[in-house]
């Protein structure tokens, strides 16, 4: 299994049980800083549960998770809430606030967590929307007036507003057409490169093998709550693991 000295996320012996159902079984792996790491797996493999552990939204039954060198299991609720500001997250369907315009969605975290003036907030939000490819005409549109791809872009702009150290993508291309899928994947890579000097780490939860192989630095394959394989993306295709081969060739 791969291990990294300066890991953004370090998971040790993580087990999560709901009632008598064990969702994550003794996971051990590190996610390196400044890289794009994808966690692949079938539906029900435990990907979302793992994501919630990384965010500190769920506590492990046993084991530990360290994020940016801090052990999440030693933090209380308020500390975890504060700590989550290190994360940005792009949700599967963008999860934009439907009563806010695109620019207000991006401005939201800035209004909540910074002391910038209204003018500065709107300028920064407009800049973020520009950087993710939203034209100025659409800045004042409601999410319901935007296409799926544009909503993802706005969602990404909002996630990047506070300059996160870790960017999480939950099934970023699910339900999108091939062209938009390609656009979102390119956006993930360009965002990662753009924020590389800040050491931003990108973690993608996905079951889209083709895109994953193309855009990721490392790929972990999660199956029935266990990491079956964890390799650099360039080597993943040649994995000898039967399940991985089955998944790739689906």
């Amino acid at each position: 299994m791969l291990s990294f000295d300066n890991a953004a996320v370090s998971i040790k012996d993580l087990t999560k049980t709901f009632g008598d159902h064990t969702v994550l079984k003794n996971l051990n792996f590190d996610i390196p800083r400044n890289k794009i790491v994808t966690i692949l797996g079938f539906s029900g493999a435990g990907k979302s549960t793992l994501l919630k552990h990384i965010l500190g939204l769920l506590q492990p039954t046993s084991g530990t998770i360290s994020v940016l060198g801090k052990d999440l299991s030693h933090m209380d609720r308020m500390e975890l809430r504060e700590f989550r500001r290190h994360f940005g997250m792009l949700f599967q369907y963008a999860a934009l606030f439907d009563s806010f315009t695109a620019i207000e969605n991006v401005a939201f975290p800035l209004r909540e967590f910074t002391k910038l003036t209204n003018k500065e907030i709107l300028e920064k939000s407009a800049g973020l929307l520009d950087s993710v490819g939203i034209d100025p005409i659409s800045h004042h549109k409601l999410p319901s007036e935007l296409s799926g791809g544009m909503r993802k872009r706005v969602g990404l702009g909002r996630a990047l507003a506070l300059g996160p150290d870790i960017m999480l993508y939950d099934e970023p291309t699910t339900g999108l057409d091939p062209i938009t899928t390609n656009m979102v994947n390119e956006l993930i890579v360009s965002t990662s490169m753009q924020y590389a000097d800040r050491g931003m780490t990108s973690i993608i939860i996905s079951h889209d093998v083709k895109a994953t192989l193309r855009i990721s630095d490392y790929i972990a394959f999660l199956h029935q709550g266990m990491i079956e394989e964890y390799l650099p993306a360039s080597e993943f295709h040649n994995s000898t693991n039967k399940l991985v081969q089955e998944f790739i060739n689906l």
Partner: peptide, 18 residues
């Protein structure tokens, strides 16, 4: 309820807002 099913409530929590 609509915010819950469209993950807007999760988005708030992830941002560190109760």
């Amino acid at each position: 309820g609509t915010m819950k099913v469209t993950e807007q409530v999760d988005a708030l929590e992830v941002m560190g807002i109760n």
